[in-house]
Design a protein around this nucleic acid. Sequence first.
DNA 1: TCTGGGGTCCTAGGACCC
DNA 2: TCTGGGGTCCTAGGACCC
Length: 417
Amino acid sequence: MIGLIDCNNFYASCERIFRPDLEGRPIVVLSNNDGCVIARSLEAKALGIPMGSPLFKCREIIEKHNVKVFSANFALYGDISNRIMNITNEMVQKLEIYSIDEAFIEVPLKDETELVEFGAKLIKRIKQCTGVTVSIGFAPSKSLAKMGNKIAKKTMKFPQVCVLSDEDNRDQALKNTAIEDVWGIGRQYSKKLRGLGVDNAFDFTRLGDSFVTKHLSVVGLRLKRDLLGEDIIITADLPKRKNISDTRTFDYDYSSYDEVRERVVSFAAQIGRKLRQQSSNCSSLIVFVMSNRFKSNRYFNSSCIQLAEPTNSNIALAEAAEKALKTIFREGFTYKKAGVLACDISDANALQTSLFSDNTAERDANLMQAIDIINSKYGRHSIVLASQDKQSEWKMNQNYLSPRYTTVIDDIITAKL
DNA sequence: TCTGGGGTCCTAGGACCC
DNA sequence: TCTGGGGTCCTAGGACCC
């Protein structure tokens, strides 16, 4: 059987690990720049704070109900996630990490009672080791495991394990799942399906194959068959990224070229780091800039630049990014967001050099390796290019940031006796 | 005042090849 | 009136996920 394990209110739960005083109190976590609500504790959901809402739109509820607000602390969430995945990996046959707070697992069990027992054991262990509560859905296919997980979460009964093994309880679950709650059916498709009289997952599985293909393409057909218990949805097991991007909304509207250039060069350097992490090169870069989309006098432009040869060197990428930026930056506009995207990603071990190569590749490779080692030892921005901005993390509104309890020695928790 | 970031896959249509 | 047949590659756009 396949299981989907999913952390409950993950970011909010992470914030609570070292703040037991926040138990029972509503919590929200904000996106970069403290812009939108991207995670909510159960209590915050109950208050009706919507997912994705800009902070200023729910200020009133937050103040009225004493909601605790946090800036996103990805260093903390990433570390807790790693711990949970490692613990899980020790207890299952196969682990496939699907996102920061979700993983598919495979277990050699079929019997419902045994599965519930095993799930309870896993949940208890994760809770004991990390303080995070997870729920698990078991089923013969991934989309059904997802569905089981949702059902487990809803029951509010601990441990939150749901097994969809036989046809009867599978069909019951399909009938009880609204079409928009099905994994793979988003806003557009559910609107379309509702219009066609399909209200729940069960109705969807009754549609004809050619009808489904016509309206939802082969993706929809695969989903239909998966929901009927054939395990055919393939999720990639941490493959190399085919696209890599680094983009940010700025803390205020930038007007000078130098301000934007500094940030864009830093994005290019981050791209280099991410490429090296998966030993890839890229052979073209896209740079884009945009003004504040909520204000008038709007401007958006992007430029794609071909690199002389595939590379992952910060130096080459920064040069290219700056060149591209020059072609799209216009005086007279202000800029609220920019980004760099790496395209045409290839294997760094199979480098095709240019006929006119100036042989800086090897020099750069050694240099980048040294930079990566130093930065991983002493912190992200210990060594940067002179053209990068110096403290990019400060150039973000993070007014409610919690300590990086588990990854930075200065942030470690203090115990008083 | 204030509005996130990072991915995937599929399809249709155009340009091109022989 | 009637206008071949079989491919590939690339891109933009649209759907989805967390």
